[in-house]
Write a protein that binds this DNA or RNA. Structure first.
Lengths: 348, 348
DNA sequence: CTGAAAGCGCTTACAG
DNA sequence: CTGAAAGCGCTTACAG
């Protein structure tokens, strides 16, 4: 006695062939109204659910896509995955999720590409065997991961990371643009002495954000003062220390942009611990719009990353490829959005 | 011309039967060393990956389990999923993840069970069709969801939520114990006037935490003073307001336990905005150990939830059931752990 | 409108 | 040690 009922059982009970049952389930072929009703009833009576595995094998498609996330406990992952799910639901695709646990295993440093490969390939192979029709790879940090997965037979869209390969798809946010917006926002509020606390210098984001900062400055004919740029390491402590540095200088900035919210939290703390106040004496801006930014004192004005949209976009691209539509553009850059809160003072 | 190579292709190229190829792939049956080597070489040459879908159909098992998460962007989800993945990897199981997006669609209120059911059932059915061998259901908030999914043929483990059904499996953290620990910790530091800002009163957690608080008090022969208990709604603002209430009373607490970190953040802010200081005048404790707790000023001492362990445990239980082992215990309660930081003052 | 039959890519009990 | 054949639960082109 089998545990699960199958299409043959239904066919027998209804005194029809499996072909007919299949036709009514899939609303195809012409089936007499009588027969159809009888079959529907039996299906409901036995709560029959067709075996997708068998269907997939026969049809040689799975309507499923794989996701490899470098680390699900890093702040960007849940929102991106959420976007992927929203788009997948719409397209009736299912998601096979795998987690490398890269951050947990390696800390905040980027492991070298070969180490990543070692972690990623087993997951990739597992997804291939499971016949996923596409893969979304979610990076832990925007960076070049060329050749992590070489010449895949199934399409891959990289998000929150990218490759140098012209044929690879990637969707990222506009780091330079976000930083430009932040700087311009400050300039528009009358600031001209703007400090910058950068992330680690081996990071693509750091450079892009630095470019955005310089671009806004030069467009508004403001001098770029290297003294105002301090190198942090993305962590709270470095935001604190670099702010102390900035405050100890002869000429002090009237505003500080930290390249992420964690360092901005450190900056606020350093200022609060000094004789200055945020934002009246010194404004502080963050980047990322992480949860904590809304609970600092004062609440932090920061740049929100289009994470959910990135997930959606990645899924959309995969779907286009799946449908054999021509996807012309390979590299996407989505806009960030300013979140105004209470940490910036207007001098106008 | 097919795109993918299959076992038959390999068999032909090696001049053997598919049975033999299958035997070498699965290390079963006796195959001559010569033949084995020849086949291995061909497999590698063509980078052949067996089709799991076909294997699954034949073997009538999928080695995959489904996860239904009520909302992946709620703070508890990523860590639980991480734990699930860690355990799944070890057991060589794959994860089919689905997201209800409950919070995004409904806000912080608990939607009624019928609304949840409407959202959950399609995901459940999809997982059943995909032949998952078990399901882990991750709640948005600890609560009773009896009958959300009724008499499932495949085993379900509920985590971060539970049912009244004696036969259902669930794994949760010990709310009462956590709250007891927190209160006792304060008492041990010499506090006797301890304020409490609760969550919404329709919440199981709120009651369990209240019980833990009262238990610690009475065990140490301290009076329970209803004036010290204020009802919040889990949000920052309510923590702020309720703390103001507490501060305006004749007898002021020397410490405040907020039932989550968000309200604790509000409490700290309210105290900082008054003539008192944290922690010298008033200590503040949170619950949940969310990321922001480490960036408040002062850094918040709080209760860490065993999220990753919950995920692991849920996966372990499913694996036991899958292996037809007898799983005696149905309901699990995992311990929370105190995270000591800077928001508590010792009066000893 | 309905059914018989082939086949998707595997595995396995059995025969040799 | 190796292979022929059946079968997992579906779908579909074809015949009637």
């Amino acid at each position: 006695m089998r545990f699960k009922i199958n299409i043959k059982d239904i066919a027998e009970k209804a005194n029809v062939s499996t072909a007919t049952v299949s036709n009514v389930i899939n609303h195809r072929g012409r089936v007499g109204e009588e027969t159809r009703k009888k079959i529907i009833n039996i299906i409901e009576e036995f709560n029959y659910q067709p075996n997708e595995i068998a269907k997939n094998l026969k049809l040689n498609k799975t309507d499923s896509i794989g996701v490899i996330v470098e680390d699900i406990s890093v702040f960007n992952a849940p929102e991106i995955i959420k976007g992927i799910h929203a788009a997948a639901e719409e397209k009736r695709l299912s998601i096979l999720l795998t987690n490398m646990g890269l951050f947990s295993k390696n800390g905040n440093q980027f492991p070298d590409i070969s180490k990543c490969k070692e972690l990623a390939m087993p997951l990739y192979r597992q997804l291939v065997k499971s016949q996923v029709e596409g893969i979304i790879y979610i990076g832990i940090h925007p960076r070049d991961i060329t050749d992590l997965i070489s010449d895949s037979k199934i399409p891959i869209v990289y998000t929150y990371c990218y490759t140098r390969n012209k044929n690879d798809y990637s969707v990222n946010y506009d780091d330079e643009g976000g930083s430009y917006q932040l700087t311009k926002y400050l300039i528009d509020k009358g600031h001209s002495q703007i400090g910058l606390i950068s992330g680690l210098i081996n990071s693509t984001s750091t450079y892009a954000r630095l470019r955005g900062y310089q671009k806004a400055l030069s467009e508004h004919l403001l001098m770029f003062n290297p003294q105002f740029v301090k190198t942090g390491d993305w962590q709270y402590e470095s935001g604190y220390r670099m702010t102390q540095d900035l405050l100890s200088q002869e000429i002090k900035p009237t505003a500080i942009i930290a390249m992420n919210d964690l360092m901005a939290a450190g900056a606020i703390q350093a200022i609060n611990d000094s004789r200055f106040r945020v934002p009246v004496d010194i404004s502080v801006l963050g980047f990322d719009n992480r949860e904590l930014s809304g609970y600092l004192s004062p609440k932090l004005t920061t740049m929100s990353l289009p994470l959910e949209e990135m997930g959606k976009m990645a899924m959309d691209i995969l779907d286009q490829i799946r449908k054999k539509h021509n996807v012309i553009q390979k590299k996407y850059l989505l806009d960030c959005q300013l979140v105004e809160r209470d940490s910036v003072y207007s001098h106008k």
